[in-house]
Design a protein around this nucleic acid. Sequence first.
DNA 1: TCTGGGGTCCTAGGACCC
DNA 2: TCTGGGGTCCTAGGACCC
Length: 419
Amino acid sequence: MRALVDCNNFFVSCERVFAPQLNGLPVVVLSGNDGCIIARSNEAKALGIPMGAPVFKWRNIIESENIKCLSGNHALYLDMSRRIMTLLSEMVENLTVYSVDEAFFQIPEDYSENDLFLIAKRIEKCTGVPVSIGASKSQVLAKLASHIAKKERLKTTHSYILNDKSEVHCRLKNTPIGDIWGIGRKMNAALSEININTAYDFAMLPKKWVKDRFSITAERTWLGIHGIDCENAIPVDSQRQSITVSQTFSHPVRNYVELSEAISSFATSCSEKLRNEKKIATRIMIYIAGDRFNTSEAQYSNSATANISYPTSSTIELVEYATKLLKGIYRNEFAYKKAGVILTELIPASNLQLNLFNPTDTAKHSKLMSAVDKINNNCPNILKLAANGIDNEWRPRCANKSKEYTTSFKDILTINCNI
DNA sequence: TCTGGGGTCCTAGGACCC
DNA sequence: TCTGGGGTCCTAGGACCC
């Protein structure tokens, strides 16, 4: 059987590990620029705050209910995720990490909810993060089971096994189709128009019709609801195929130098991630965009792509490509609110073909880059290209960020032993 | 006034080829 | 005047996920 472990309110739970005074209080975690709510504690959910809500629209309730707002601390969440996944890999078979707070694994047919409870308890004991576990015949149903565990088993086993046929039918009849993994806003709207409202209604549609009307992806969801797992529903090879660094600016950027510094900084971060994975990139794309919410002023967005003649992970070369692309699409008369750099067609650095005509001395570059990485790993961002700029006023605001308790020596907790 | 960031896969349509 | 059919590759954009 398939099982899914899902961390409860993951970002909030990570924060509470190091700030237990937040337990029991309504807490939300915010996106870049402290703009949107991207995680909520149960207490905040109970107050009706939806996922992804813009903070300014909920300001009144946040103040009147005294909801604690934290800026996102992703270095902390990633490290906590790594701890949880490592622990899990010691306890279960065939672990597939699906996202920062979820992972699938295989369990024997005779596993009980109590067996899953032991796994959940161990994770909570060792990391401080509470989790829910659902299990069923397919990933789609395991996902549904984990939602049920989260809703109904919070105070008991933290787990739920959805296996019995009549139980499956009953649960599907009580699940809105939009709550099924793989059914998004568009499909939900299209289905509701033809009076398909529950997961059970959807399961009763002919498979071929689902594929013809929607797509092969929808057909896989249909099969999943019928308890049939499709291969490739989750890529077995978890190596990512692209690296993106993008940001919404703290204010509209109106001059070329500032925009160019942002693009250089993003290309720099991309290159660091690339080298960290021991890969080189074959294509680079940059994009710049206006303010999609501003209707009072004409907005301009554009993107540009380049094939990298001699695939590289050198910051110097990638920044050069990125800024050259920016020159091609930049238009002086507009203000920009967002920009990004995306590297694609990543290949292992060991596959690099030495080329007689490559004007760059790759050996020299790679030596320089590993020296820079070594220094920056100890003192983040101490060495950077002048092209990245100094002030970086475009950087997003984050007014209330917790410390990097687990990833930075300066933030490490101290224990007072005066007993 | 204030609206995130990082991914995946699929599809349609254009360019090009024989 | 009449203007095929089949294939590949590439790209942009859509839909979905956390």
